[in-house]
Protein backbone atom coordinates (compact mmCIF):
# COMPACT_ATOMS: atom_id res chain seq x y z
CA UNK A 1 0.00 0.00 0.00
CA UNK A 2 1.21 3.44 -0.87
CA UNK A 3 0.86 6.10 1.72
CA UNK A 4 -0.12 9.53 0.75
CA UNK A 5 0.70 12.51 2.77
CA UNK A 6 0.09 16.11 2.32
CA UNK A 7 3.38 17.70 1.57
CA UNK A 8 2.48 21.15 2.67
CA UNK A 9 1.27 20.02 6.06
CA UNK A 10 4.38 17.90 6.47
CA UNK A 11 6.65 20.79 5.65
CA UNK A 12 4.67 22.97 7.99
CA UNK A 13 5.16 20.52 10.79
CA UNK A 14 8.89 20.35 10.12
CA UNK A 15 9.50 24.05 9.93
CA UNK A 16 6.98 26.14 11.63
CA UNK A 17 7.39 29.16 9.43
CA UNK A 18 8.08 28.69 5.76
CA UNK A 19 7.93 31.75 3.65
CA UNK A 20 6.76 31.80 0.09
CA UNK A 21 10.18 32.85 -1.07
CA UNK A 22 11.81 29.81 0.44
CA UNK A 23 9.24 27.60 -1.19
CA UNK A 24 9.78 29.23 -4.52
CA UNK A 25 13.49 28.77 -4.17
CA UNK A 26 13.01 25.12 -3.32
CA UNK A 27 10.74 24.67 -6.33
CA UNK A 28 13.26 26.28 -8.63
CA UNK A 29 15.96 23.95 -7.30
CA UNK A 30 13.76 20.98 -8.05
CA UNK A 31 13.27 19.82 -4.46
CA UNK A 32 9.55 20.47 -4.65
CA UNK A 33 7.53 18.79 -7.32
CA UNK A 34 4.14 19.82 -8.58
CA UNK A 35 1.14 18.06 -7.06
CA UNK A 36 -0.41 17.97 -3.63
CA UNK A 37 0.52 14.43 -2.60
CA UNK A 38 3.78 12.58 -2.46
CA UNK A 39 4.05 8.80 -2.67
CA UNK A 40 6.09 7.19 0.06
CA UNK A 41 7.96 4.18 -1.19
CA UNK A 42 6.36 0.81 -0.36
CA UNK A 43 5.18 -0.35 3.03
CA UNK A 44 7.16 -0.88 6.15
CA UNK A 45 9.57 -3.74 5.91
CA UNK A 46 8.12 -7.01 7.07
CA UNK A 47 9.69 -8.57 10.10
CA UNK A 48 12.40 -11.14 9.69
CA UNK A 49 14.23 -11.73 12.93
CA UNK A 50 16.91 -14.12 11.71
CA UNK A 51 18.75 -14.37 15.01
CA UNK A 52 15.53 -14.95 16.89
CA UNK A 53 14.53 -17.63 14.41
CA UNK A 54 17.86 -19.39 14.74
CA UNK A 55 17.81 -19.27 18.49
CA UNK A 56 14.23 -20.49 18.59
CA UNK A 57 15.14 -23.35 16.30
CA UNK A 58 18.10 -24.37 18.41
CA UNK A 59 15.92 -24.42 21.53
CA UNK A 60 13.07 -26.15 19.79
CA UNK A 61 15.00 -28.82 17.94
CA UNK A 62 14.67 -32.39 19.07
CA UNK A 63 17.67 -34.61 18.79
CA UNK A 64 16.17 -37.91 17.85
CA UNK A 65 17.31 -40.73 15.66
CA UNK A 66 16.40 -40.53 12.00
CA UNK A 67 14.09 -43.55 12.31
CA UNK A 68 11.99 -41.60 14.72
CA UNK A 69 11.60 -38.63 12.37
CA UNK A 70 11.81 -40.14 8.90
CA UNK A 71 12.50 -36.80 7.24
CA UNK A 72 14.29 -36.34 3.97
CA UNK A 73 15.33 -33.11 2.33
CA UNK A 74 16.12 -33.66 -1.30
CA UNK A 75 15.59 -32.09 -4.66
CA UNK A 76 13.81 -33.76 -7.55
CA UNK A 77 14.73 -37.21 -8.66
CA UNK A 78 16.24 -37.56 -12.10
CA UNK A 79 13.64 -38.91 -14.42
CA UNK A 80 13.88 -42.64 -14.03
CA UNK A 81 11.40 -43.67 -16.66
CA UNK A 82 12.62 -41.77 -19.69
CA UNK A 83 15.40 -39.31 -19.07
CA UNK A 84 15.47 -38.04 -22.63
CA UNK A 85 11.91 -37.98 -23.84
CA UNK A 86 10.37 -35.80 -21.20
CA UNK A 87 12.20 -32.95 -19.57
CA UNK A 88 10.79 -31.33 -16.45
CA UNK A 89 12.25 -27.96 -15.69
CA UNK A 90 14.07 -27.24 -12.46
CA UNK A 91 12.31 -26.34 -9.31
CA UNK A 92 12.90 -22.62 -9.74
CA UNK A 93 11.37 -22.48 -13.18
CA UNK A 94 8.25 -24.49 -12.44
CA UNK A 95 5.21 -22.49 -13.35
CA UNK A 96 2.74 -22.75 -10.44
CA UNK A 97 -0.16 -22.20 -12.83
CA UNK A 98 0.81 -25.20 -14.93
CA UNK A 99 -0.89 -28.03 -13.07
CA UNK A 100 0.90 -30.90 -14.71
CA UNK A 101 4.36 -29.42 -14.38
CA UNK A 102 3.82 -28.47 -10.77
CA UNK A 103 2.43 -31.83 -9.74
CA UNK A 104 5.23 -33.55 -11.61
CA UNK A 105 7.80 -31.59 -9.64
CA UNK A 106 6.14 -32.61 -6.35
CA UNK A 107 5.97 -36.19 -7.48
CA UNK A 108 9.62 -36.22 -8.42
CA UNK A 109 10.59 -34.73 -5.11
CA UNK A 110 8.68 -37.44 -3.29
CA UNK A 111 10.25 -40.01 -5.57
CA UNK A 112 13.73 -38.79 -4.75
CA UNK A 113 12.99 -38.97 -1.05
CA UNK A 114 11.61 -42.49 -1.36
CA UNK A 115 14.57 -43.68 -3.40
CA UNK A 116 16.96 -42.34 -0.80
CA UNK A 117 14.96 -43.45 2.23
CA UNK A 118 14.10 -47.01 1.28
CA UNK A 119 17.67 -48.39 1.59
CA UNK A 120 18.06 -46.54 4.87
CA UNK A 121 14.83 -48.04 6.14
CA UNK A 122 15.95 -51.49 5.08
CA UNK A 123 19.18 -50.85 6.87
CA UNK A 124 17.29 -49.90 10.01
CA UNK A 125 15.12 -53.00 9.57
CA UNK A 126 11.91 -51.08 9.16
CA UNK A 127 9.55 -52.96 6.82
CA UNK A 128 8.17 -51.02 3.89
CA UNK A 129 6.05 -53.70 2.26
CA UNK A 130 2.95 -55.05 3.82
CA UNK A 131 2.63 -58.81 3.29
CA UNK A 132 -0.39 -59.89 1.30
CA UNK A 133 -1.99 -61.66 4.22
CA UNK A 134 -1.63 -58.76 6.59
CA UNK A 135 -5.05 -57.25 7.01
CA UNK A 136 -5.59 -53.99 8.78
CA UNK A 137 -7.83 -51.00 8.51
CA UNK A 138 -6.89 -48.73 5.64
CA UNK A 139 -7.07 -44.97 5.46
CA UNK A 140 -9.73 -45.20 2.80
CA UNK A 141 -12.62 -47.60 3.23
CA UNK A 142 -13.30 -50.46 0.84
CA UNK A 143 -16.43 -48.70 -0.28
CA UNK A 144 -14.43 -45.64 -1.23
CA UNK A 145 -11.88 -47.73 -3.11
CA UNK A 146 -14.71 -49.48 -4.92
CA UNK A 147 -16.08 -46.13 -5.94
CA UNK A 148 -12.66 -45.07 -7.19
CA UNK A 149 -12.26 -48.27 -9.16
CA UNK A 150 -15.69 -47.86 -10.67
CA UNK A 151 -14.90 -44.31 -11.70
CA UNK A 152 -11.61 -45.31 -13.24
CA UNK A 153 -13.28 -48.08 -15.16
CA UNK A 154 -16.05 -45.87 -16.49
CA UNK A 155 -13.53 -43.25 -17.46
CA UNK A 156 -11.47 -45.77 -19.34
CA UNK A 157 -14.55 -47.10 -21.08
CA UNK A 158 -15.57 -43.61 -22.10
CA UNK A 159 -12.11 -42.95 -23.42
CA UNK A 160 -12.08 -46.16 -25.42
CA UNK A 161 -15.47 -45.36 -26.82
CA UNK A 162 -14.47 -41.91 -27.91
CA UNK A 163 -11.28 -43.27 -29.41
CA UNK A 164 -13.22 -45.83 -31.40
CA UNK A 165 -15.66 -43.21 -32.62
CA UNK A 166 -12.78 -41.03 -33.66
CA UNK A 167 -11.21 -43.84 -35.61
CA UNK A 168 -14.47 -44.68 -37.29
CA UNK A 169 -14.96 -41.10 -38.28
CA UNK A 170 -11.50 -40.96 -39.79
CA UNK A 171 -12.12 -44.18 -41.67
CA UNK A 172 -15.40 -42.91 -43.05
CA UNK A 173 -13.76 -39.73 -44.18
CA UNK A 174 -11.04 -41.68 -45.94
CA UNK A 175 -13.58 -43.98 -47.58
CA UNK A 176 -15.52 -41.06 -48.93
CA UNK A 177 -12.37 -39.55 -50.32
CA UNK A 178 -11.46 -42.76 -52.09
CA UNK A 179 -14.95 -43.06 -53.48
CA UNK A 180 -14.96 -39.58 -54.95
CA UNK A 181 -11.55 -40.20 -56.40
CA UNK A 182 -12.73 -43.35 -58.13
CA UNK A 183 -15.80 -41.61 -59.45
CA UNK A 184 -13.79 -38.74 -60.80
CA UNK A 185 -11.37 -41.09 -62.45
CA UNK A 186 -14.16 -43.02 -64.10
CA UNK A 187 -15.75 -39.84 -65.34
CA UNK A 188 -12.46 -38.68 -66.76
CA UNK A 189 -11.94 -41.96 -68.55
CA UNK A 190 -15.38 -41.83 -69.99
CA UNK A 191 -14.85 -38.30 -71.19
CA UNK A 192 -11.61 -39.16 -72.94
CA UNK A 193 -13.14 -42.20 -74.63
CA UNK A 194 -16.12 -40.22 -75.78
CA UNK A 195 -13.87 -37.53 -77.10
CA UNK A 196 -11.89 -40.05 -79.03
CA UNK A 197 -15.06 -41.55 -80.44
CA UNK A 198 -16.29 -38.17 -81.45
CA UNK A 199 -13.03 -37.47 -83.18
CA UNK A 200 -13.23 -40.76 -85.01
CA UNK A 201 -16.79 -40.10 -86.08
CA UNK A 202 -15.89 -36.71 -87.43
CA UNK A 203 -13.00 -38.23 -89.25
CA UNK A 204 -10.32 -36.21 -87.51
CA UNK A 205 -8.48 -39.33 -86.56
CA UNK A 206 -8.77 -42.78 -88.04
CA UNK A 207 -7.34 -44.72 -85.17
CA UNK A 208 -9.53 -47.01 -83.22
CA UNK A 209 -6.88 -48.14 -80.79
CA UNK A 210 -8.40 -46.17 -77.92
CA UNK A 211 -11.11 -48.80 -77.72
CA UNK A 212 -8.76 -51.56 -76.79
CA UNK A 213 -6.26 -49.24 -75.19
CA UNK A 214 -8.58 -47.96 -72.52
CA UNK A 215 -10.23 -51.18 -71.58
CA UNK A 216 -7.42 -53.62 -70.85
CA UNK A 217 -5.43 -51.91 -68.10
CA UNK A 218 -8.00 -52.17 -65.32
CA UNK A 219 -8.68 -55.82 -66.15
CA UNK A 220 -5.19 -57.07 -66.73
CA UNK A 221 -4.50 -57.86 -63.14
CA UNK A 222 -7.81 -59.49 -62.50
CA UNK A 223 -9.02 -63.02 -62.97
CA UNK A 224 -9.86 -64.15 -66.46
CA UNK A 225 -13.41 -65.21 -65.71
CA UNK A 226 -14.44 -62.05 -64.04
CA UNK A 227 -12.64 -59.99 -66.65
CA UNK A 228 -14.31 -61.69 -69.59
CA UNK A 229 -17.66 -61.21 -67.97
CA UNK A 230 -17.10 -57.55 -67.59
CA UNK A 231 -15.87 -56.90 -71.11
CA UNK A 232 -19.02 -56.37 -73.08
CA UNK A 233 -18.84 -56.34 -76.77
CA UNK A 234 -21.73 -54.04 -77.15
CA UNK A 235 -25.33 -54.76 -76.13
CA UNK A 236 -26.98 -58.15 -76.25
CA UNK A 237 -28.70 -59.63 -79.26
CA UNK A 238 -32.21 -58.52 -78.45
CA UNK A 239 -31.11 -55.00 -77.86
CA UNK A 240 -29.12 -55.01 -81.05
CA UNK A 241 -32.13 -56.15 -83.03
CA UNK A 242 -34.28 -53.50 -81.43
CA UNK A 243 -31.69 -50.90 -82.11
CA UNK A 244 -31.60 -51.94 -85.71
CA UNK A 245 -35.37 -51.88 -85.89
CA UNK A 246 -36.14 -48.68 -84.07
CA UNK A 247 -32.87 -46.89 -84.33
CA UNK A 248 -30.47 -46.02 -81.62
CA UNK A 249 -29.53 -42.61 -80.49
CA UNK A 250 -30.71 -39.32 -81.80
CA UNK A 251 -34.08 -37.74 -81.43
CA UNK A 252 -36.88 -40.14 -80.70
CA UNK A 253 -39.76 -37.76 -80.85
CA UNK A 254 -41.59 -37.82 -84.11
CA UNK A 255 -39.27 -40.38 -85.61
CA UNK A 256 -42.15 -42.79 -86.13
CA UNK A 257 -44.40 -40.27 -87.72
CA UNK A 258 -45.27 -40.66 -91.33
CA UNK A 259 -43.53 -38.44 -93.71
CA UNK A 260 -44.35 -37.60 -97.30
CA UNK A 261 -41.97 -40.30 -98.57
CA UNK A 262 -43.29 -42.98 -96.30
CA UNK A 263 -46.82 -42.01 -97.17
CA UNK A 264 -46.13 -42.23 -100.86
CA UNK A 265 -44.23 -45.47 -100.53
CA UNK A 266 -46.60 -48.21 -101.49
CA UNK A 267 -44.01 -50.82 -102.28
CA UNK A 268 -45.23 -53.10 -99.58
CA UNK A 269 -48.81 -53.02 -100.90
CA UNK A 270 -50.06 -56.30 -102.29
CA UNK A 271 -53.38 -56.31 -103.93
CA UNK A 272 -53.94 -59.96 -103.18
CA UNK A 273 -53.81 -59.32 -99.47
CA UNK A 274 -55.44 -55.96 -99.24
CA UNK A 275 -59.04 -55.47 -98.21
CA UNK A 276 -59.73 -59.25 -98.05
CA UNK A 277 -60.37 -59.23 -101.71
CA UNK A 278 -58.76 -61.07 -104.52
CA UNK A 279 -58.68 -64.50 -106.08
CA UNK A 280 -57.71 -66.57 -103.03
CA UNK A 281 -60.48 -65.25 -100.80
CA UNK A 282 -58.00 -65.73 -98.07
CA UNK A 283 -60.02 -63.73 -95.68
CA UNK A 284 -62.90 -66.21 -95.64
CA UNK A 285 -60.82 -69.29 -95.33
CA UNK A 286 -61.17 -69.61 -91.60
CA UNK A 287 -64.93 -69.16 -91.49
CA UNK A 288 -65.46 -71.62 -94.30
CA UNK A 289 -64.79 -74.60 -92.09
CA UNK A 290 -68.05 -74.44 -90.20
CA UNK A 291 -70.00 -73.74 -93.37
CA UNK A 292 -68.48 -76.75 -95.00
CA UNK A 293 -69.43 -78.86 -92.04
CA UNK A 294 -72.95 -77.57 -92.15
CA UNK A 295 -73.09 -78.21 -95.86
CA UNK A 296 -71.82 -81.70 -95.28
CA UNK A 297 -74.40 -82.39 -92.59
CA UNK A 298 -77.23 -81.05 -94.74
CA UNK A 299 -75.92 -83.15 -97.52
CA UNK A 300 -76.17 -86.24 -95.32
CA UNK A 301 -79.63 -85.29 -94.20
CA UNK A 302 -80.62 -84.96 -97.82
CA UNK A 303 -79.43 -88.37 -98.34
Amino acid sequence: MAHYQNQSSESESEESVVTDKELQAAFSKGVLKPGLNVVLEGHQKSLNNVDGLKQCLSEFKQHLAWVERLDMTLGQAPNVMSPTSYHTPDKATVDPEDDFQREMSFYRQAQAAVLKALPLLHHQKVPTRRPDDYFAEMAKSDQQMQKIRHKLKSKQAAMEKSEKAKQLRALRKYGKKVQTEVLQKRQKEKATVLNAIKKYQKGISDRLDFLDEEQPPPHQGKKEGAGSQRIKKGPNAKRRYKNQKFGFGGKKKGSKWNTRESHNDVSSFRASVAHNKGPGKAGKKGSNVSEKCIQHITHLVHW
Binding site: L70, D71, M72, T73, L74, G75, K91, A113, V114, M138
Partner: peptide
Protein backbone atom coordinates in the same frame (compact mmCIF):
# COMPACT_ATOMS: atom_id res chain seq x y z
CA UNK B 1 -4.53 -45.99 -0.31
CA UNK B 2 -2.45 -46.75 2.73
CA UNK B 3 -2.75 -48.41 6.07
CA UNK B 4 -4.53 -46.40 8.68
CA UNK B 5 -1.91 -45.22 11.07
CA UNK B 6 1.18 -46.29 9.18
CA UNK B 7 4.16 -44.03 9.61
CA UNK B 8 4.88 -41.53 6.84
CA UNK B 9 8.14 -40.55 5.25
CA UNK B 10 8.52 -36.77 5.21
CA UNK B 11 9.97 -35.29 2.08
CA UNK B 12 11.09 -31.67 2.12
CA UNK B 13 12.08 -29.26 -0.57
Amino acid sequence: NCLKGSRPLLSFD
